[in-house]
Computed example of a mutant assay.
Amino acid sequence: MTKTHQHPSHGRSGRPGGHGHGQAEILDLDAEVLAEHLASIAAWLPLKAEPRRIVDLGCGTGAGTFALLERFPEAHVTAVDASADHLEVLRVRARARGVPDRVRTVQADLDSGHWPDLGTPDLVWASASMHHMAHPDRALRSVHGLLAPGGLFAVVELDGFPRFLPADAPESRPGLEERAHSAADGFHAQHVPHRGADWGPMLTAAGFAVEDERTVTVDIKGNGSEAVGRYAHAGLQRIRGSAAPALSPEDLAALDELLDPTSPHSVLHRDDLAVRTERTVWAARRT
């Protein structure tokens, strides 16, 4: 397998639903800020022929679905998510884009042992969704049984939530963001144990042949972008929810100041933000 590194200027991914409006906001901002990054992954896939039937597992509000529809103009996508709200957003956007006849939405719990009929796809796409599975081994076997012979399974996973602030920020508590992420690690280890996992061996154990692996480094300069500011605000707000019990009172106060829209120190008013993260893609073939 080979690993390549790329520095795109935008991109995004889908996740299983059920997290409410805050999750939908992060999905939408992820899509807006990271669009080129997502398109580059779709273009990289080692396909033997253009897929006609695609399944997007944990589609969220549709960033992956629409990237795939654009990349493969003859394809139809079955978009699967646990959230009825996310799927309704996706249907509205499909109509607005003039592609409602190319999208089928299916509400389903992918941790269930009994998946609905998703057809026989040539390509299954799972972007930032597999790490949410309570039983990933079972889900991988389900995908293997779903795919057409020779079909491709693309697993896109994130290396934690993006970082946004310079290392010496904020001025009152330099390094706060890294401490907040460290404080949240214990929560994530307990509640999302497969985040950051190496999916290669698990894919092989499920019967796939892993053909390639690619790590994509994302480093997007905000340059005062309103979207990056809102993305940072939503991301840090989410980190606060799991990090707060382990943060010092001083760090928590500084974090709350960053999140206060009325504060001159809010991330919404900073012009030195960036989006820094890594995504790894595994391309696995059903042999």
Rank of each mutant, 00 (worst) to 15 (best):
T4E: 14
T4P: 06
G11S: 07
R12D: 14
S13V: 13
H19M: 04
H21V: 12
Q23G: 15
I26R: 15
D28M: 00
L34Y: 01
L34T: 03
L38S: 13
I41F: 00
L45F: 11
P46E: 09
A49Q: 15
A49G: 13
P51S: 14
V55Q: 03
D56R: 06
D56E: 08
L57Q: 02
L57Y: 01
G60A: 09
T61W: 08
A63R: 05
A63I: 00
A63W: 02
A63V: 08
G64R: 02
A67I: 11
L68H: 09
L69G: 08
F72T: 03
A75L: 08
T78V: 15
A79I: 05
V80W: 02
D81P: 10
D81A: 10
D81F: 11
E88V: 08
E88Y: 02
L90T: 02
P100D: 07
R104Q: 14
V106I: 15
S112R: 06
S112Y: 08
D117Q: 13
T120A: 09
P121R: 00
L123F: 06
W125S: 06
A126N: 03
D137L: 04
R141L: 08
V143P: 03
A148D: 14
P149Y: 09
L152S: 09
V155N: 08
V156P: 01
D159I: 01
R163V: 04
F164E: 02
A169D: 06
P170L: 13
E171Q: 08
G186M: 04
A189D: 14
H191I: 02
V192P: 00
A197R: 13
D198V: 00
D198I: 04
G200W: 09
P201K: 07
A206M: 09
A206Q: 07
A209S: 10
V218E: 03
V218I: 15
I220Q: 11
K221S: 12
A227P: 02
G235K: 02
L236I: 10
Q237F: 04
R238H: 13
A246G: 07
L252D: 13
A253S: 13
D256A: 10
E257Y: 03
L258R: 02
D260P: 12
T262G: 07
P264T: 10
H265L: 06
L268I: 11
R270H: 05
A274R: 15
T277P: 01
E278P: 02
T280N: 05
V281F: 11
W282V: 04
W282S: 02
R286D: 11
R286M: 11
